[in-house]
Each structure stands twice: as structure tokens, then as C-alpha cells.
Amino acid sequence: MSEMLLETRALGAGYGPVTVLRDIAVQIPKGQITALIGANGAGKTTLLRAISGLCATSGDILFDGSPITRLATNRIAARGIAHVPDGRGTLAGLSVEDNLLVGGYLQRRRAARAAGIERIYSHFPKLKQRRHQQAGTLSGGEQQMLAIGRALMQGPRLLMLDEPSFGLAPLIVRELFTIIADINRTEGLSILLVEQNVHQALSMSQRAILIEHGQVARSGPSAEFLGNDDIRRAYLGS
């Protein structure tokens, strides 16, 4: 079994007639945080959507060595990929607890779902306080935590986060990233993190992928990205 959890080969993706990604070859290693960075509109969200089967693709996507390219989105989720979409994808009309239960849909056993929920509440105590509240009435930070909680309920092997810090206050962002790093460390969960805050993303990840205009411009250890002058100028503003 390879060290790579997820691998794309000559992956192309787009929406209808529009091609967004061309010839993407990336590898996501097991147990690590991989940062996916790039300018607005570069195609980061599209890459996550392609992996989850939410947009038309060409080429191959291998998850744990087996192809998932042609699978339906819910089957890809069942394979062990959890995707927190941009904008959080809150099930606004459902209660907090029901949101988490939807995340646990793939868990057939009631006891496993209950245990999962308790685990989420231990990561995010605020959610427990608001367990019966309608999810649409939560604050932005709480909704993001709920979205991550819902994804964790799937018991995934890969967690993909699309700009989790978007629109949140700095204090909340710090709290959020602490929890994300914590989950990676304590549970060994592999994470693919899309983030606008490039410095944050690079400093908390082991590897990074830079996408420019729908193609991979560079990939490698995050430390090398941090030390690279071009990257610093273009994305870190220094």
C-alpha cells in the first residue's frame, strides 16, 4: 500500500463547456495536512469538487489506490472522503444535532452515531449547548464548526476543508485552526486544506500545492514554500 492517500492523474475538470482545471497531478499523503493555495479563481474549489464528483472530470482520481473518478458523490463520501464545501453547506433548517446525524448517515449503527456525536461535542463544546437550535441561526464560526463536525461524523480518512476561515473573526479563526491541527495530530486524520490565509496554511501544514490558472504551479514541503522568495512576494506580501 502506498504512502499516498489520494492521487490525481491528468485530471481535468470544468463546468459544462468551461474547462477550469487542466492536467492536474497531485498527491495527498497519509496522516498529514496538505495546504492547497492559489489566487482567487485559480481552481482550488473546483479541484475539491472534482474529487467529490460534483463537477465533470476527465483523467483519474485514485483514493487509497483504487479509482473513484466515476463514482457518485455519496459513494465517494462512503469511501472515506469528507468535504466541507465553501460557504459551509449548513443544513440551515435542521437542528444542530440533526446536522451531525446527517453526517453520520453512513454509520448504520445507532450507538456508533451517538458515540460520534459525543466526540464532536468534546471537540466543539459550543455545539453541545446549541444542540436543539436551528443550524441556520448559528453564528458564522459556529456554523463552520458544525460543518467540520458533520464531516467528522462520517469517520473519514480524508478531510477536505474549503476556506474554513472565510468571513470569520480572527479570534475564531485561531480557535478553529487549533482544533483542526489538534484533530490531525491526535487522530492522525489526513487533511486537504484550502486557505486564503497562505501564511497560516503553510505554517500548519507539512506539504503544499500551489495552483495557478487551473494548473499545478508547484508542490512540495510547506517549509520550502515559506522559504521561497517568489512565493513570499506573490502570496505572503513580504
Partner: peptide, 15 residues
């Protein structure tokens, strides 16, 4: 109910 509320999120959760 999840399907009615947000089909994309429901799909992503394996529904």
C-alpha cells in the same frame, strides 16, 4: 429532510 434542505451537503455526507 437533509435532501430537501441542502442536496449538495446531503450528497457530500453520503446521502
Amino acid at each position: 429532510r437533509a435532501t430537501a434542505d441542502n442536496p449538495v451537503s446531503a450528497r457530500l455526507s453520503g446521502v
